[in-house]
Amino acid sequence: MTLSEFRHGNIEVVREGLLIVVIATAEDREESLKHAEHLASLQAEVYFITDRSVSLPGITEKRILILPEQADAILSQIVAVLPILLLAEKTTSLKGADVDDFRYISKVVDRY
């Protein structure tokens, strides 16, 4: 999403200490850098994952993860997102929740 879309909705849930992971690869990197810097200025705990060396004043080096650069833009996004999905699956399992279960999502029906 663009920075303006983000600032007119999702920004409302950001609080000091909120853990946020920003993934920036290929063509969305510059916009993602802006998001990360703004979130860090709101005192969120921002982790930045990218495939290029970056310098972010509000984010310490130990919170920046640089992945191997990929020649293909699509592949670079998969390489960046897949570990996060696996981490979410593992965390959900460790918490004792069913990874394949949803709390509120259901099939489209005519009644609840």
Rank of each mutant, 00 (worst) to 15 (best):
M1K: 06
M1T: 00
L3D: 01
S4F: 10
S4M: 09
E5I: 05
F6R: 00
F6N: 01
H8A: 04
V13M: 09
V14T: 06
V14W: 04
R15V: 13
L19F: 08
V21R: 04
V22E: 09
I23A: 06
A24I: 10
T25K: 04
T25P: 07
A26S: 15
D28K: 02
D28W: 03
R29D: 00
E30M: 10
E31Y: 03
L33S: 01
H35P: 04
A40S: 15
A40P: 13
L42T: 06
A44N: 12
A44I: 11
E45F: 09
E45L: 05
V46G: 02
V46C: 01
V46T: 11
F48Q: 02
D51C: 00
D51H: 03
S53A: 12
S55Y: 13
G58F: 08
G58Y: 10
G58L: 11
I59W: 12
T60A: 15
K62P: 06
K62G: 02
R63T: 10
R63I: 10
I64L: 05
I64P: 08
L65H: 08
L65R: 08
L67W: 00
E69Q: 08
A71Y: 09
A71R: 07
D72H: 03
D72W: 04
I74E: 07
I74H: 03
L75I: 12
L75T: 14
V79C: 03
A80C: 08
V81Q: 13
V81H: 09
L82A: 14
L86C: 12
L86T: 12
L86E: 15
L87E: 15
A88V: 14
A88Y: 07
K90S: 07
T91R: 04
T92M: 04
S93H: 04
S93C: 02
L94Y: 02
L94R: 03
G96P: 09
D98I: 08
D100C: 03
D100E: 12
D101M: 12
F102D: 11
F102V: 13
R103Y: 09
R103A: 12
Y104T: 13
Y104C: 09
I105K: 09
K107C: 01
V108Y: 00
V109C: 01
D110L: 05
Y112N: 12
Y112V: 13
Y112D: 10
